[in-house]
Nucleic acid binder design. Structure first.
Length: 334
DNA sequence: CACGTCACGGTTGAT
DNA sequence: ACATCAACCGTGACG
């Protein structure tokens, strides 16, 4: 079982072995990099191993996504969309058909050969899991075209929350009904809503003390939130785990989760002496203008907003799946 | 010193 | 219900 508490790396950062870093931290890594901070400094500031920083930045540069890849699962080996389609057809024509009959028909119709025909138990599972509720909603076909199908209507839903909840701070930012201080341009409203950019909001608003109690609030908000991850089998493993994992992260030992500790550190000295933690200052100082004037660098088209925040819908998903899809043969990581 | 790479021990989730 | 296994994870160390 996953440890409720993470481990501490050499830099003092908290991590959970085997699990991705929280999106809040991934996001900061990319943001800091875009602000010109060197990876080695990012590594030290966020207390994330430089190898990890390197990997996340490399992936971001390639895919435009800060998200971790889809963990777990396996590709359909025999129950391909075509096979499922045929099975459904058989079932619709003859609702009383047996799994072994379906198997025979798949062979007879040449849909499968003896090497790739699904087992009877596989067919049963398909009938149970896919075909059963498919009669009402035709979701399987559309979503099964790619191994990691982003159900279009859910894409925005499942994607946005990833950024709305990535950190306790963000939750707090989201709790702010409006940003009283931030002069938000109309064009940026959506951005703030969907991506409050925890640190930016907190830094700008000067929220400090609530960071810790936010951990609890944040957890509550996650528990309360019932976007599809709670009642759906998960789209591709990305919708559920990033949320869960971060709950765990916030419950790091010593009450010093990586995310919070970073924020705490950075917020402890809003205007730190240039000599010491200049990167923080650079970051904090730049944050407001970054948000306000750059609008998350809309123009670039290869930046955070373009890929992860604005999400004109399909694009982000391409990014999300790039890891398993596009990078399969491309040893981004082995 | 900075950083790309990879073995390692770990988790996850579809089959 | 359970086991398998291939995907992914971040760290830590090497070069």
């Amino acid at each position: 079982m996953e440890p409720a508490f993470g481990e501490v790396n050499q830099l003092g950062g908290v991590f959970v072995n085997g699990r991705p870093l929280p999106n809040a931290i991934r996001l900061r890594i990319v943001e800091l990099a875009q602000l010109g901070i060197r990876p080695c400094d990012i590594s030290r500031q966020l207390r994330v191993s430089h190898g990890c920083v390197s990997k996340i930045l490399a992936r971001y540069n390639e895919t435009g996504s800060i998200l971790p890849g889809a963990i777990g699962g396996s590709k359909p080996r025999v129950t391909t969309p075509t096979v499922v389609k045929h099975i459904r057809g058989y079932k619709q024509r003859d609702p009383g058909i047996f799994a072994w009959e379906i198997r025979d028909r798949l062979l007879a119709d040449g849909v499968c050969d003896k090497y790739n025909v699904p087992s009877v138990s596989s067919i049963s599972r398909i009938l149970r899991n896919k075909i059963g509720n498919l009669s009402q909603q035709n979701q399987y076909e559309s979503s099964k075209h790619s191994p990691h199908p982003p159900p279009p209507p859910q894409s925005a839903l499942s994607y946005n929350p990833l950024y709305s909840y990535p950190s306790p701070i963000t939750a707090a930012g989201a709790k702010m009904p409006t940003s009283p201080v931030l002069p938000t341009l109309p064009g940026h409203m959506g951005i703030h809503r969907t991506w409050p950019s925890s640190h930016s909001v907190t830094d700008i608003l000067g929220i400090r003390a609530i960071v810790e109690q936010q951990v609890e609030e944040w957890n509550n908000s996650i528990n309360r939130s019932n976007f599809q991850s709670s009642n759906q089998p998960t789209v591709n493993g990305l919708d559920k785990s990033p949320l869960e994992q971060e709950v765990k992260y916030t419950q790091a030992p010593n009450g010093l989760p990586a995310a919070s500790s970073f924020v705490a550190a950075s917020t402890m000295a809003p205007y730190p002496p240039p000599t010491q933690v200049s990167p923080y200052m650079t970051y904090s100082a730049a944050a407001s203008s970054y948000m306000a004037s750059h609008g998350w660098q809309h123009a670039g088209g290869s930046t955070l907003s373009a890929h992860s925040c604005d999400l004109p819908t399909p694009l982000p998903f391409k990014s999300i799946q790039a890891t398993r899809e596009g990078h399969k043969g491309k040893q981004l990581y082995k």
